[in-house]
Amino acid sequence: CEEGANSIVQLIMEYVPLGSLRDYLPKHNVSLAHILLFAQQICEGMAYLHSLHYIHRDLAARNVLLENENVVKIGDFGLAKAIPEGHEYYRVCEDGDSPVFWYAVECLKECKFYYASDVWSFGVTLYELLTRCDPAQSPPVKFIELIGATQGQMTVLRLIELLDRGKRLPSPKDCPCEVNPPFPHPKSPHVG
């Protein structure tokens, strides 16, 4: 949308009154069943994006918004990219800040992003949900505990080494032994 003679570009977004899961979960007593409902809706939203040949590249609790106590929507498409026809991945060519603690190893090593990369990010997001987005349990905090304090590119290198050795985030205390949600629907109301 453009306004006035100076044509300032503006983006009009849906108002989601309860904010992000990252802000909401630490302040509310949310049951495991409700967490799994949110996880299912995130899966449905991501399946819908992938069916349109898009990868999100920034799936995290901070980018999942609550429309109400029962409905979440995926937001913040600033890093989203369309997968070109006939290709299996998107390669990042520009430098910039990236949510590296939500990235799969191939993303960190080769700057390649696949649909499966979003699945990895979903796993990290599910970890966030199961820890109720406790800041002391956040993926950056837990990974830094594992790799030690670093800065810049050294953080990425140490994270790659850690993941290559098979190290992962610790299992949250409320993590059920097995989670079997139904398959996502082809169209989803869970994309904002």
Rank of each mutant, 00 (worst) to 15 (best):
G4Y: 03
G4T: 11
S7T: 11
V9H: 09
V9L: 15
Q10I: 11
L11N: 11
M13N: 09
M13W: 07
E14C: 13
V16K: 07
L18C: 01
G19T: 12
G19K: 13
G19D: 11
S20C: 10
S20N: 07
L21H: 06
D23A: 10
L25V: 08
L25N: 13
H28W: 05
A33T: 15
I35D: 01
L36F: 11
L36Y: 07
L36T: 09
A39C: 09
Q41W: 04
C43D: 05
E44I: 02
G45L: 06
G45E: 06
M46Q: 14
A47P: 01
A47E: 11
L49N: 03
L49P: 11
H50R: 09
H50L: 08
H50F: 08
S51L: 03
L52Q: 11
H53M: 08
Y54S: 01
R57N: 05
R57S: 07
R57K: 14
D58N: 15
D58M: 08
L59D: 04
A61E: 03
L66E: 08
E67I: 10
N68F: 01
E69W: 02
E69T: 09
N70G: 02
G75H: 01
G75P: 02
G78V: 10
L79K: 05
L79Q: 07
A80I: 05
K81H: 12
K81V: 02
A82N: 07
I83E: 05
P84Q: 06
H87W: 01
H87Q: 14
Y89E: 07
Y89G: 02
Y90I: 08
C93Q: 15
C93T: 15
C93I: 15
E94I: 09
D95Y: 06
D95A: 08
G96I: 05
D97M: 10
Y103L: 14
Y103M: 15
Y103T: 06
E106V: 02
L108C: 10
L108W: 06
E110K: 10
C111M: 10
K112P: 05
F113R: 08
Y115R: 15
D118L: 01
W120R: 01
G123W: 06
V124T: 14
Y127N: 03
Y127C: 03
Y127G: 05
E128M: 04
E128D: 07
E128H: 06
L129F: 04
L130M: 15
T131C: 15
T131P: 02
C133N: 08
C133D: 04
C133M: 03
P135R: 06
A136P: 00
K142H: 02
F143R: 04
L146D: 07
L146I: 13
A149R: 15
T150Y: 03
Q151I: 03
Q151V: 06
G152S: 04
G152I: 04
G152N: 05
Q153A: 14
Q153E: 13
Q153R: 13
M154P: 00
T155S: 14
V156W: 01
L157V: 12
R158Y: 06
R158Q: 14
L159N: 11
L163Y: 00
D164Y: 00
K167E: 14
R168F: 04
R168W: 01
R168G: 03
P170L: 02
S171Y: 03
S171G: 00
P172N: 08
P172W: 10
P172R: 13
K173V: 12
K173E: 10
C177S: 12
C177R: 14
V179H: 10
N180P: 01
F183T: 05
S188V: 14
S188I: 11
P189M: 04
P189W: 00
